[in-house]
Design a protein around this nucleic acid. Structure first.
Lengths: 353, 353
DNA sequence: CTGAAAGCGCTTACAG
DNA sequence: CTGAAAGCGCTTACAG
């Protein structure tokens, strides 16, 4: 009888030949009820040693694999976490995602990556996975989503929502991030200590709270050095092109020209590098440039980029841990701040004399 | 009675207050059976106009959203496609993924991104989603998976498996890709036509079929020009660092030094650029460099990179269309070849006289 | 065109 | 420690 099971058509990827053994088959083979098989799997301590053994053998014998769809339906969960990000093509996010997947997989969860780039409707579509149990929680890597999706209620209740890197100015969600104010102030301070007196900045979108924080740090650090007069901030969108364009604005138009530029992303800093090159401005002799994020490319551009490094892998891990704790109904430190590091490479130096 | 429904606790993301209306609620409100509601949704042509109307109103009234888990269990499908890729941090893939998501979402499918980088066991884990209906199909963006996962049976049957960009040397899966042999030969030809006689190459992993194709194109193109004697291929892994290292090997060690280097990826080409810079070798005056893929960086490195562009968005779209056709049981053109384009920028020129 | 009923594969009080 | 039974929310022959 058990032998018969084994002569089933060989498993292949074609649907036709596919008919997976169910919990019923296991129960039959083990000589117990499906309830007991289920328990042996989910709560082994509630099943006698002997039964557990028989079930284990039976499972191996028939080649049983639980049907997750059925389990999820019954348990009203999906074991899926979605992470919403603004742009999947930005390599900044990939290491964060790796960190998230690491802890998710270990806990038996999947992560679904939701790219919101094109269309704000996508964020809503992903949020709609929650009430229908198609997703158990969401990690937001962007604050740029329709405001209506997130409310104060979500912040107060045990909503399965975690922010990573970013935050909302008006809703206090559980968050893991760096101290953007400090990191920015520190970069400016480093530039000032080198002797720079005209330090400009290419910000990310000004509506973005973390960019505001960074710009606040920028202004305060300048003020502390008595350099406020030379402050100049232009707005980019984190991408190469906007860095190039705004680099042109700052370097071609302004008089006197800034001797240093602090950018809110490496891509923009690399765009600034290109603008400088095109204008024949030497980096770092005539211009210092600082980026943000320490993406892989920052070591391979010319010159190698000085940049603020975030612990991306760890951010991903912590954010996922936080979310899983929330799902488990555990108490959670609602605000985790990880430390950054200024990585000094070749794009910064003393200003020309 | 219907009014009562509307005073349910306001929807929030917290699970506690969550109790979504089901098809039963709709049936009640519409005064018909659940079967009819189901039909009105799935096969409206089987339901009378009047009933359809009542159902539509009832759905709006109670705020019904189908429970996808239940539907999937019943239909034995998941409406999820997984795409396996070697390394999520490589920006080459993001545009392909965008293309896939575009057509998937339109057809009511999700795409689950499976990063296989770390651990070959991950590929197997993703394949295991198939027989349990947690995924309906797989698009492979890598050929570097355990051999046992894919067999001839899969190629012959209507297995829901599609290859994009890559292919297996011994299993003929439905594939959408470029002609790597031609694209490579064409790049070499371009270099030769510029006057280069010593053209080296930094290949991707030599076990990779597409790299073999490219190397074959490289050799044949050299042979056609009588340049076989100077052929030299070193192996990289597509990443920046290996490009830099192998660039050093080619430029620092060899005598006579190659005057042009063809790389199997932009990242490696950018690594070669860095090696040349460090050795004081001018590009393109003393060395021409060609990359592959036309990633975003390639326009922002110094000098801007000449590279082979693949229609990444379209590859993603076509691969997904092919897979959905397979799932629909439709006939499919099993081999789609999309065209490439050599984008000439600043990293190539005539060799020094 | 419509409804009653069975069933997808699991889990979980409940009773013993 | 174990089993019978109900139920998660849908879909789909089957019969009318």
């Amino acid at each position: 009888m058990l032998r018969a099971k084994q002569t089933l058509p060989k498993k292949t990827l074609s649907k036709r030949t596919l008919s997976m053994p169910t919990i019923k088959d296991v129960a039959l083979a083990a000589g117990c009820s499906t309830a007991t098989v289920s328990r042996a799997l989910a709560n082994p301590e509630k099943v006698s040693e002997a039964t557990r053994q028989r079930v284990a053998h039976a499972i191996a014998e028939v080649g049983y694999v639980p049907n997750v769809a059925a389990r999820n339906l019954r348990r009203a969960e999906s074991r899926t976490i979605v992470t919403l990000l603004p742009d999947i093509s930005n390599p900044f996010f990939s290491e964060i995602i790796n960190g998230m997947e690491e802890v998710a997989h270990q806990a038996g969860y999947q992560v679904l990556i939701g790219d919101c780039e094109r269309d704000p409707g996508r964020a809503e579509a992903y949020f709609n996975l929650l009430p229908t149990n198609q997703a158990d929680g969401i990690i937001l890597l962007t604050s740029d989503i329709p405001r209506a999706l997130v409310s104060h209620a979500d912040a107060r209740a045990d909503a399965p929502l975690v922010m990573a890197c970013e935050f909302f100015s008006d809703v206090d969600l559980p968050t893991v991030a760096i101290d953007n104010y400090q990191a920015s102030a520190h970069a400016i301070d480093y530039l000032a200590s080198l002797g720079h007196a005209r330090i400009a900045s290419v910000s990310g979108p000004v509506g973005n709270p973390i960019c505001r924080e960074r710009t606040r740090g920028y202004h305060d650090a300048l003020a502390a050095r008595g350099l406020s007069n030379s402050a100049r901030v232009v707005e980019g969108d984190f991408g190469f092109r906007s860095g190039y364009q705004q680099g042109m604005t700052l370097l071609d138009g302004m008089e006197p020209r800034p001797s240093a530029i602090f950018c809110h992303s490496d891509e923009m800093a690399i765009g600034v590098l290109k603008a400088a090159r095109q204008l024949g401005i030497g980096v770092p002799e005539e211009l210092s440039v600082v980026g943000f994020d320490n993406i892989g490319f920052s070591e391979y551009c010319e010159p190698e980029l000085t940049t603020v490094s975030q612990p991306r892998h760890e951010i991903g891990q912590q954010a996922m841990r936080m979310l899983l704790s929330l799902l488990a109904g555990e108490a959670v430190v609602r605000r985790q701040t990880l430390s950054t590091q200024l990585i000094v490479r070749k794009s910064t130096g003393r200003p020309a004399a």
